[in-house]
Amino acid sequence: MDYKNTLTTCIYCGCGCQMNIETLDGQIIGVWPSKTQEISQGKLCIKGWNVTSFSDHADRLTTPLIRKNGELVEASWDEALTLMAERLGAIKTESGPDSVAFLASAKCTNEENYLFNKLARAVFNTNNIDHCARL
C-alpha cells in the first residue's frame, strides 16, 4: 500500500488554489482541498474538484500527432518539433511573420508561457499570440 497526498496548485486559473491529489499505488483516487493554504482555505470550485478527471482520460494525448495523408499519426517529439520548425520557418519566409499565430495553453506554467511569448514575438516577429484561458 502506497498511499500519498501530493500537494499541488490548481492548473485552471490564476487564483492558485491548492489541493492534495490523493493516490493509492500510483492511481489517483481523490482530491482533497488544502485546508492549510491561505489562498483557498479548504475550498475549491468545480474545476478544482475535478482537476484530475483528464489525467487518465482516454481522449488525453500522450504523444504528438502528425497528419499524414489526412490521418493523424502518432509521432516522436523530435519528429514533430523538426517538422514544425521547418514548416513554420518556410511559411514565415514565404508569407511574412504575421501569417503565423501562436495559441498558448493555460495549463502550462507561467514560465513556459513566457518562453512561448518570446518565441512568438522575438523569434517569429509576430504579435499574433493568445491563450486558451476561456474555459
Binding site: 500500500m1 497526498n5 500537494l7 491548492q18 482533497w32 488544502s34 485546508k35 492549510t36 479548504g42
Partner: peptide, 26 residues
C-alpha cells in the same frame, strides 16, 4: 504535516510520528 501543509496520511510502523497532527479536520 509536511512543511506548512497538513493532509491525510496513512502512517505505518516505524514512521516518524512527530509529523502526526489532528488539525485541520479532514
Amino acid at each position: 504535516r509536511t512543511g506548512p501543509a497538513v493532509a491525510p496520511h496513512v502512517f505505518v510502523a516505524g514512521d516518524d510520528l512527530s509529523t502526526l497532527e489532528i488539525n485541520p479536520r479532514y
